[in-house]
Design a protein around this nucleic acid. Structure first.
Length: 834
RNA sequence: GCGGAAGUGGCGGAAUUGGCAGACGCGCCAGCCUUAGGAGCUGGUGGCCGAAAGGCCGUAGGGGUUCGAGUCCCUUCUUCCGCACCA
């Protein structure tokens, strides 16, 4: 008998699917659509098992939904711009384009090798002008709407990348790609997108995603947006009639307890404030010291609070009190107003600071119940809400009421107002890099900043020969690119030489899949209306904040431009776990990468697919194990042997009249097989459809195979029609997970004319799954004491009688008083004795 | 500190959501088959007591609800992930 030959089988069916255009789908409003999307890869190095797991989960979903009769779009493309390509150019002299295209070829070859059911006609690559044309187009639309703007700002500079990093690319104060390189501040003119304009909506609309997105992703996004309600209060500076300091506080109710203002060391007013103060030189020195902040987050969190008195005072507008102005290393310029009021009695940080520097610690809030705070014995800040004391006319109010009233009063008296602020910052998109989308802006000496007109798009990346990795923007060294004419006056002008953050590319790519070759617009709104939003998105948790927040922002901008008619781009999100080896995620730098292609050459891709689905639930991390994958390989061999052993005899057998008729005059063996097959079908369907428990679905299929095996020889007591029904069910259920083997089995079972690409998912027949005899667990006081086999569907009374009259049970019950009997039909009888 | 997830055999994990804990697989043990086996087949495999029948214990710890708890409630602990001096 022929052995299972995965290499031959997989090649054969992949060729067939290609020839059949099996996975191509065009918009068809008469059909219900389903959009399955996996996060597009950055084509670098090798495609490893981490990628493989992501695409396998997506492919199972796509194939299952197709079998359910949905019109499935399942595309793939390349996130092709980015720093590794440029780094390769710098280090090895390969042009980023060449490096990228080579990698794409290799990734594509491997994806084909795995038989993923993509519609390759929709393939996109973000480094092609046909694609980034529309990045530029979106940028210009945002410029028109005031969403894109330019400002000088202090940004994170990585000396190794020689580029600016987004806040999100800074990890522990270091570059996300160079974890040992602290970022340095640098002030440059940069392009920003006003994502903060959508902060409230980005937060609010998370409620729409509650049923479809993982809770932790929602939590991370909420956290990142960081909405805070509070009050902005202006403190006049004593002796400076024209100067005031604004603070933001969420606890204006504690303002009578202010014993100082604390400014961030970089606060712009500081130089003016300290001018002319005694000890000016010492203060300047202190400032310089504080400005050299620690960069590692862990160090910052544990760093001791430090600060100094500036020699100036401010006036508390609520009570006219003079309070000292300090500088503190723990006050952040970027958050709120860059200045905070110091209320030591009711804020932990302020307490620590005030204690260290001997500042006053007035108590202005008392707990509404329990022990009152004693100013002489305060050992920690009391941060909870309570009742106001020593607070002028607000004394006696609760914190809640005071916050409301004091905000109103501050506004009425002209020194403050209620305000909501966000932690979210505008998105800086300028990068001093070559391998990205050129920003379509021209600077003219006469006209100033001039957008490139739509008709001149795309602004194409010029060819460049040498990449040094030094300096700022590589494009600045290409005169043919830089020097141009002003679209407004025709005079000499210079092009913007920065390129866009690649997160721009990935913010809308899956809209382009709906209409990938449009050269008049980013996409046809009609096609997008049919295919979008994405029904199921699958990717890594690493993108929980950046990519998924940006793409949500883009969707809202596109909606406001009238291009799309929905608020959220992704209905359901699934974040799969990592693939680990030796306990850590596979990565080139750790040297623990298992290449997907090597794995497929060794075991066959169906085995690899099965293993990644079986070894762990999809949301959990998965430890790579050669031994366990061999177990999966054995299972598939076993299936192949089992089916092919019987296939010849079943080839021409027809299962007519519906599966349910097979039950008529069925032998016990047949009943066992039909029952098992349909019980498994019911649960596998549920596992695929609603639970995403691929691992337990596979376990069930293993049980079915074990059962068929146990009923051998099938020739003895099993009609061919029954055997065929059972084998076909097995084959169809395996199809989403191991499609090549499944196709092969389907063919040897006599279906040589068709493929399973669009086969219907089998229909569950309750009558076939029903047991006619069931095992009832008999408990006494909740402890299992025996089991009885009875006909299915007995009434509670019948079951109770059978249980208590069972010889073993009745013996145990002798002399006992029965208090009550709980009966769960077809399952259990629990006799409760006194 | 805040937020999220999770704690079940030697290991990965199941338990269809309150009804036989450990399905399925890996590993291990014994046997069969084989020139050979990193192939195949059969059986066993949570712990303790017992020759066996059987009994007791057992889902991180403690308490509770219930006829019945891995599952629900309270509480303590531990691990992982994200954010982190956010006023």
């Amino acid at each position: 008998m022929a052995e299972y030959d995965p290499q031959a089988i997989e090649k054969k069916w992949q060729a067939r699917w290609n020839a059949d255009h099996a996975f191509e789908a065009d918009a068809d409003p008469s059909k219900p659509k389903y959009y399955v999307l996996e996060m597009l890869p950055y084509p670098s190095g090798t495609l490893h098992m981490g990628h493989m797991r992501n695409y396998t989960i997506g492919d199972v979903t796509a194939r299952f939904r197709r079998m359910q009769g949905l019109h499935v779009i399942h595309p793939m493309g390349w996130d092709a711009f980015g720093m590794p390509a440029e780094n390769a150019a710098i280090q090895r002299g390969i042009h980023p384009r060449e490096w990228t295209l080579t990698n794409i070829e290799s990734f594509k070859r491997v994806l084909h090798k795995f038989g993923f059911s993509y519609d390759w006609r929709r393939e996109i690559s973000t480094c092609e002008p046909e694609y980034y044309h529309w990045n530029q187009w979106f940028f210009l639309r945002m410029l028109e709407k005031g969403i894109a703007y330019r400002k000088r700002s202090r940004l994170n500079w990585c000396t190794k990348c020689a580029t600016v990093l987004a806040n999100e690319q800074v990890i522990d104060g270091c570059c996300w790609r160079h974890e040992d390189t602290p970022v340095e501040p640098k002030v440059i003119e940069q392009w920003f997108l006003r994502i903060t304009q959508y902060a409230d909506e980005l937060l609010e609309d998370l409620t729409q995603l509650e049923s479809g997105w993982p809770e932790r992703v929602l939590a991370m996004q909420r956290n990142w947006i960081g909405k805070s309600r509070g009050t902005r209060v202006r403190f006049a500076v004593d002796e400076f009639a024209d100067t005031s300091i604004e603070v933001f506080t969420t606890r204006v109710d504690t303002i009578f307890g202010v014993s100082g203002l604390i400014l961030a060391p970089e606060h712009p007013l500081l130089s003016k404030l300290v001018e002319g103060v005694a000890d000016h030189a010492a203060i300047e020195e202190n400032l310089q010291k504080l400005r050299r902040r620690l960069t590692r987050a862990a160090d910052i969190a544990t760093a001791e609070k430090e600060g100094f008195f500036t020699g100036r005072y401010a006036i508390n507008p609520f009570n006219g009190e003079k309070v000292p102005i300090w500088v503190g290393n723990f006050v952040l310029l970027e958050y709120g107003t860059g200045a905070a009021m110091c209320v030591p009695a009711h804020d932990e940080r302020d307490f620590e600071f005030a204690t260290k520097y001997g500042m006053a610690i007035p108590i202005v809030i008392q707990p509404t119940e329990g022990t009152q705070l004693d100013p002489d014995r305060l050992i920690a800040a009391h941060v909870e809400y309570g009742e106001l004391v020593n607070s002028g006319l607000y004394t006696g109010l609760t914190s809640e009421k005071a916050i409301e009233k004091m905000s109103c009063d501050a506004e009425a008296r002209g020194f403050g107002k209620g305000e909501t602020i966000f932690r979210l910052k505008d998105w800086g998109i300028s990068r001093q890099r070559y391998w990205g989308t050129p920003i379509p802006i021209i600077y003219c000496e006469k006209c100033g900043m001039v957008p490139v007109p739509d008709k001149d798009l795309p602004v194409v990346l010029p060819p460049m020969a040498k990449f040094s990795g030094l300096g700022e923007s590589p494009l600045a060294s290409v005169p043919e690119f830089v020097n141009t004419t002003c679209p407004a006056c025709g005079g000499p002008a210079r092009r913007e030489t920065d390129t866009m953050d690649t997160f721009m590319d990935s913010s809308w790519y899956f809209y382009r899949y709906a209409d990938p070759h449009n050269n008049k617009a980013p996409f046809d709104p009609g096609l997008v209306r049919y295919w979008l939003p994405v029904d199921q998105y699958i990717g890594g948790i690493v993108h929980a904040i950046l990519h998924l927040l940006y793409t949500r922002f883009f969707c809202k901008v596109m909606r406001d431009l009238g291009l799309v008619n929905h608020d959220e781009p992704v209905k359901r999100l699934f974040t799969q776990g990592l693939v680990l080896k030796g306990g850590t995620a596979m990565s080139k730098s750790k040297g623990n990468v298992v290449g997907a292609e090597d794995m497929a050459d060794k075991f066959g891709c169906d085995t690899g697919r099965l293993y990644t689905l079986f070894a762990a639930p999809p949301e959990k991390d998965l430890e790579w194990s050669e031994q366990a994958i061999e177990g999966c390989s054995r299972f598939l061999q076993r299936v192949y042997r089992l089916v092919s052993k019987h296939a010849d005899g079943l080839k021409n057998v027809q299962v007519g009249g519906g599966a349910a008729t097979l039950l008529d005059s069925a032998t016990p063996k047949e009943k066992v097989l039909l029952r098992k097959a349909h019980q498994v079908l019911r649960r596998v369907t549920h596992d695929f459809d609603a639970r995403w428990h691929f691992n337990s679905a596979i376990a069930l299929l293993m049980e079915l195979v074990n059962e068929i095996h146990a009923q051998e020889p099938l020739e003895d007591g099993v009609r061919p029609e029954v055997a065929k029904e059972v084998f076909e069910l097995l084959t169809l259920m395996l199809n989403p997970m191991v499609p090549h083997l499944s196709e092969e089995l389907w063919e040897i079972l006599g279906h040589s004319h068709e493929t399973l690409a669009h086969a219907a998912w089998p229909k569950f027949v309750p009558a076939l799954a029903a047991e006619d005899e069931v095992e009832i667990v008999v408990q006494i006081k909740g402890r299992v004491k025996g089991k009885i086999f009875v006909a299915a569907g007995l009434t509670k009374e019948e079951l109770e009688k059978l249980a208590v009259t069972d010889s073993k049970i009745s013996h145990l019950l002798e002399g006992q008083r029965i208090v009550k009997v709980i009966v769960v039909p077809d399952k259990l009888v629990n006799v409760v004795t006194a």
